[in-house]
């Protein structure tokens, strides 16, 4: 399980985009400050985390996303590759 804190930068404070994010089961939306919207995302794995990120980025009214917090307290050790030539 990955938990990520995102700062979503909106083109303008739009209730529509905030509603769409609130409706998403993996996301918890905080209080918007001007055009900066805090969002916590929970994802089962890296792939779904990236999918959620891309989904947010594709929403109309979203200008940019910054990641500000990542918790990897329960990493899946088996997914940790050790590259070899």
């Amino acid at each position: 399980m990955l938990t990520v804190g995102l700062l979503v930068i909106l083109d303008s404070p739009s209730p529509h985009v905030m509603d769409r994010l609130r409706a998403h089961p993996a996301m918890t939306v905080g209080e918007v400050a001007d055009r900066w919207l805090p969002v916590a995302v929970e994802a089962d794995d890296d792939e779904s985390c990236r999918e959620y990120h891309d989904w947010i980025a594709a929403q109309p009214g979203v200008a940019f996303i910054d990641v500000v917090h990542v918790n990897f307290e329960e990493p899946d050790a088996d997914s940790n590759p050790s590259p070899s030539p």
Binding site: G5, L7, V32, A33, D34, V39, V68, E73
Partner: peptide, 23 residues
């Protein structure tokens, strides 16, 4: 409880960043 805590911590970090950027 642990999951809930992690989620709140992530949201708190993002909220602090949002406030700081706005102000």
């Amino acid at each position: 409880q642990r999951r809930e805590f992690n989620k709140l911590a992530a949201l708190a970090a993002a909220s602090a960043a949002a406030q700081a950027r706005a102000q």
